[in-house]
């Protein structure tokens, strides 16, 4: 059983944290990952810094800029994955990357390095299913899950096509737009979760815009298996330049507050996908 499968089998819903490797610098970046793990992040998404992160909003884009400014390379990202893997052996780790980074050094090289470093999955944010043919064999060869994105604008036919190539879990984009905090999540989240649930047995995690405890609660109430928080965590790094101790403290507090959105589960042993009605 993969680490991702094991996690979702064991726990539900799960809390997914996100950080950009090398933000704000290589060493502190490991500290950030460590704090996230210690504070109860169940699955960690590590983004590979990229010069043109078009799917991301301003907060995460600035994190990419910070990481690139200190010269973070894909090799540094794999080094970070290795360290986090050593620190937290059962923690599922997913690389979040733009395709040119993968393409430039070679698709198979990238997947091989990711697997050797201890990553469990790779999400290539700008590689829709039509273009993903060239990565599928490498993912398979190196035992890496291909995490796919499903958007609210994805038609039912496309959904089907996308889900055929998916493994690990499915990343449901909650709203039309880029990553970043929002005041409200869209009201039809449960409908989206339900519709995708009908077509796959994979766990469903919801991200984009999730930044408050009530959002976490709403995602859980919509029946998702996981909630993904990015910008709200990345912002803490941005707001504590030169104050590492303060940054770690606030990060812990923010994660604790967000996780309070999860109501105590009356029956934690029962997978959520078996609870969906209708």
């Amino acid at each position: 059983m993969s680490r991702i499968e094991a996690l979702f089998a064991r726990k539900n819903p799960v809390f997914v944290g996100f950080t950009v490797a090398g933000d704000p610098d290589r060493e502190t970046s490991f500290g950030v990952a460590k704090t996230m793990v210690d504070a109860g992040v169940d699955l960690l998404e590590i983004a590979v810094p990229y010069s043109d992160p078009v799917a991301d909003g301003p907060v995460i884009e600035r994190a990419h800029v910070r990481a690139l400014r200190v010269g973070t390379t894909p090799d540094d990202v794999f080094a970070l994955v290795r360290r986090v893997r050593e620190y937290a052996p059962p923690l599922p780790l997913v690389l979040f990357t733009y395709y040119n980074i993968v393409y430039r050094r070679g698709v198979d090289w990238f997947f091989a390095e990711a697997a050797a470093a201890g990553a469990d999955g790779i999400l290539i944010v700008d590689l829709p299913t039509e273009e993903s043919g060239e990565v599928a064999p490498s993912a398979l060869r190196h035992g890496i899950d291909r995490i796919v994105l499903v958007a609210p604008t994805t038609s039912p036919e496309r959904r089907q096509k996308i889900l055929r190539g998916a493994s690990g879990f499915v990343y449901l984009i909650s709203l039309e737009g880029v990553t970043g905090e929002r005041d409200h999540l869209p009201p039809n989240l449960a409908g989206l979760v339900g519709a995708v649930r009908e077509k796959t047995d994979l766990p469903l995690a919801v991200g984009f815009g999730v930044s408050r405890p009530e959002h976490v609660a709403a995602v859980a109430a919509a029946g998702a298996d996981g909630v993904i928080v990015g910008s709200a965590l990345v912002r803490v790094i941005e707001e504590h330049p030169g104050d590492e101790a303060g940054m770690h403290e606030v990060l812990r507090a923010v994660i604790r507050a967000l996780k309070s959105g999860f109501a105590p589960d009356p029956d934690p042993d029962m997978p959520r996908r078996e609870r969906v009605e209708g």
Binding site: V54, D126, L127, P128, E130, E131, A151, T153, I173
Partner: peptide, 14 residues
């Protein structure tokens, strides 16, 4: 060429 974009954009391109 191709369409290397986030899934969110695919419906608009289609």
């Amino acid at each position: 060429g191709g369409q290397y974009v986030p899934e969110t954009l695919m419906s608009a391109l289609i």
